[in-house]
Amino acid sequence: MTKRLVVFASGTGTNFEALADHFDRSQTARIVALVSDHERAPVVAKAQARGVPVITLDYRRYATKQAAEAALIQQLPPCDLLVLAGFMRIIGETLLAAFPNRIINLHPALLPSFPGRTGIEDAFNYGVKVTGVTVHFVDAGIDSGQIIAQAPVLIGKATTLETLETAIHDVEHHLLPQTIEDLIKEEKI
Rank of each mutant, 00 (worst) to 15 (best):
M1R: 15
R4K: 13
R4W: 01
S10A: 15
S10I: 07
T12G: 15
F23Q: 12
R25L: 13
Q27N: 14
S36F: 03
D37V: 14
H38P: 10
P42Q: 10
A47D: 09
A47F: 04
Q48C: 06
P53Q: 02
V54N: 03
T56S: 01
L57T: 12
A63K: 11
A63W: 05
K65V: 13
E69D: 02
E69F: 01
E69R: 03
A71T: 01
L72V: 09
Q75T: 11
P77V: 12
P78H: 02
C79H: 08
C79E: 00
D80P: 06
D80M: 13
L81S: 00
G86R: 02
G86L: 02
F87T: 10
E93R: 13
A97M: 01
N101R: 00
I103Q: 01
P108Q: 07
P112F: 03
S113K: 15
R117Q: 05
I120S: 05
I120E: 02
D122N: 09
A123D: 01
F124A: 03
N125Y: 00
K129V: 11
K129T: 03
V133E: 12
V135D: 06
A140F: 03
S144H: 09
G145K: 06
Q146C: 12
I148M: 13
A151D: 06
A151W: 09
P152R: 14
A158Q: 13
T159Q: 10
T163S: 13
T163Y: 04
H174N: 13
L176P: 01
P177D: 07
T179R: 05
I180C: 01
I184P: 03
K188F: 06
